[in-house]
Amino acid sequence: MLELTAVRVAFPIAGRLVPVVRDVDLSVRPGELLALVGESGCGKSTIARTVVRLERPIAGTVSLDGADVHALRGDALRAYRQAVQMVFQDPFQSLSPRQTVARALAEPLHIHRIGSWAARRRRVAELLELVELDPGLAGRRPRELSGGQRQRVAIARALAVRPRLLICDEPVTALDAPVQATVLNLIRDLVDRLGLGCLFIAHDLAVVRQLADRVAVMYRGRIVESAPTLRLMDAARHPYTQALLAAVPRLDADPSPAPTLRGEMPGPLASIDGCAFNPRCPQAFDRCEAERPQMIVGPCPDESVACHRQNQELA
């Protein structure tokens, strides 16, 4: 349903346009939860924002069911706003401090002029039930809610207009560990029950393992590896994916700190020839500095990786 083709997004930094998303291809199918994983600054949130039209690509297209999202106008745009909804990272900032839960949930219905007054009230009650919130919370304001409750309200608000595609931008990063699990379960349930497509942005592969159907790993504006979750987790091929997996704290492993990735991702202004990961890569060789690796599909049709070492082995 959602299709990104060679999408490039750039921001003006220090007087020139600097690409932060570089030629990204991505697709989300109905009923599928695709996780997009990477460090902060890699461009994953920009992709989410581009899909919901908060940013515009300078090249490439985002399309929903074949229609170019950024060319939509009038009624078609209105319909798109209903079809695609987003849950933001920090529910405290994405909800109005002055609105009660009931008003926040009714707001999208007002905006899209859906239903009568009574129908809206029923829908609000329905939504509270859908996200497993106590109906007694309807009169509360965000500051009277816990972090987990706030994020449930934000999810309910996104679902109010019955979208087909849900974009989640690190929805549990701002929450405590035990609360994270409950919100993640809720998101997965909703995706399954309502048959939604879901693009889930995360920086933590541990979260994604039980949640996602497919994972795409992003580094410095590009997708470097994409595979069904289990394949990616158990047989990661890109050295960056392997490093992300090694960084996850494990209870069963040796308690001493795991060997970690050296250094940090270079900023968008730095110019790097060849593979963007080569300065930090333990497996880099001379070709990695000279030439940028292309995404090569295989061995299964659902898997692809952009790494010279892997591509060598495949060939």
């Binding site: 560990a177 039980q210 949640l211």
Partner: peptide, 24 residues
């Protein structure tokens, strides 16, 4: 035990539910 159960396990089977504590 609840806190430990809520840690996403690297051995978990994809598609299974996250273990949770009852809400506060």
């Amino acid at each position: 035990r609840g806190l430990l159960d809520a840690v996403p396990s690297p051995m978990a089977v994809p598609g299974t539910r996250f273990r949770t504590l009852p809400p506060a």
